[in-house]
Amino acid sequence: MMRKSANIVLLLLAVVFCYGLQISKPHYGDLIGPIPARGKLADTVVGRAFEVHAEKIEFARKLKVDQFGRQKVLTTGGVWAVVTVAFAARAESTVVSVASWRGPTGLTYDQTERLSFMNGLLPVAVDPGLPRKARLIFEVRPDQANNATLLISEKLVAALDSQAEISLGPVTITADGLPGGAVDTLDMAEPL
């Protein structure tokens, strides 16, 4: 009898121990996922293969772009968010190709694909010692502009490689539902 109840207690202890491990330890997906390199706007975030420095964010209702010699105005149902960044490679030439915008509620937006073939868009090739500027352009919902996080990595599958996580800080939302400081039209032909 004594032995039986001791076994039951031991089993219960094992269950509690395993449950504790399950809730307190990172999941497998987190362990083999991207390794975050965190920073703020205007910081230089250093990853394994590249460094990135987010200089400024601009919001706009419309984007003016030159495509194949023709001028085009791109409108949006949300808001355009344009982040100007400077990249530098560390020890080896590399290509930075993926960026996404994660809003405060976790909605994540990939870079827009509506502006193909424009200079300064990802993917950009960067060489050691030669910093290079780029524009990251997203089309987001205005309520995802505040306290957003910019995620940048070399490849789409950044497993066990560094991913820059840049917190972009608070943005006030004005009465018309747009982020504060949003302009009507942003000209993408302006040099970086």
Binding site: A91, E92, S93, A125, D127, P128, G129
Partner: peptide, 15 residues
């Protein structure tokens, strides 16, 4: 590639 004295490596450029 080009390798410098610190071991940095440059790949051919397209610029």
């Amino acid at each position: 590639v080009l390798v410098d004295k610190d071991g940095r490596r440059w790949s051919p450029t397209s610029i």
